[in-house]
């Protein structure tokens, strides 16, 4: 089993696409996605796909990263394409497949050029206006940090409970693996809550 997170999609760089601030860039992606979905007919959609791939090259996103972004969708896209071809002919199939792939390429290019923490910061800033309805942006920011910090600790807990279950010959037992993992997760959360509390976080 994994002991840590796999490598993310983000690739550092200095292209114009890396330099656009995360918030406006996300806005661009949304607009581009709406435009792509609104397109009709096979050739405009294929053209949109071409533009999306062009931008990914311009942003110096390695093709294998684009491929990694696409991979989870391939099966669904293939089934959809085949279904549309069978039901409504090849133009519709091309339209659906090209649109889908273009959307994924645009989104992957965004993720590949935007560091996670930058985007999370942008989200926290974007929450500012919601303060009046009770949203506390600094609490949200703390939740992001806490979660990212907790991931390695939970990996460690999962690993240790798995080893312990194995040592007792219970590696196939759901209960021996998952229950201690969940219980230790709650205990860890309480300890973290106590540590936050002790440091006066939440008092302000």
């Amino acid at each position: 089993m994994r002991r840590s997170l796999p490598l993310g999609i983000y690739r550092p760089g200095s292209t114009i696409w890396h330099r656009i601030p995360a918030g406006p860039k996300l806005g661009l992606v949304v607009l581009a996605s709406i435009a792509v979905v609104a397109l009709r007919g096979p050739w405009p959609c294929v053209a949109a796909l071409g533009v999306a791939l062009g931008i990914s090259l311009w942003a110096r996103v390695p093709p294998q990263v684009v491929w990694r972004g696409l991979r989870p969708f391939l099966l669904v896209v293939a089934i959809l394409g085949a279904f549309q071809w069978w039901q409504r002919g090849w133009p519709v199939a091309v339209e659906v497949v090209a649109t889908t792939v273009a959307l994924v390429v645009v989104a992957t290019t965004f993720t590949a050029t935007t560091p996670t923490d930058r985007l999370l910061d942008a989200i926290v800033r974007g929450l500012g206006p919601f303060r009046r309805i009770g949203v506390r942006p600094e609490k949200v920011a703390l939740a992001f940090s806490l979660m990212i910090t907790a991931i390695p600790a939970i990996f460690e807990i999962a690993h240790e409970t798995r080893e312990a279950a194995k040592a007792r010959g219970l590696e196939r037992s759901v209960r021996a693996n998952l229950s201690p993992m969940a219980i230790r997760t709650v205990a860890h959360a309480y300890e973290t809550g106590a540590a936050l509390h002790a440091r006066g976080i939440g008092d302000d």
Binding site: L142, I154, A158, R162, L178, T185, V186, Y190, T192
Partner: peptide, 25 residues
């Protein structure tokens, strides 16, 4: 509220670990 925040963040991390660990039993 701090305990709730810690529980929410830690369980979000647990979901993450569950989602990327394919080899749980």
């Amino acid at each position: 509220s701090t305990t709730d925040l810690a529980l929410i963040a830690t369980f979000a991390a647990l979901i993450a670990v569950c989602a990327v660990s394919a080899a749980l039993p």
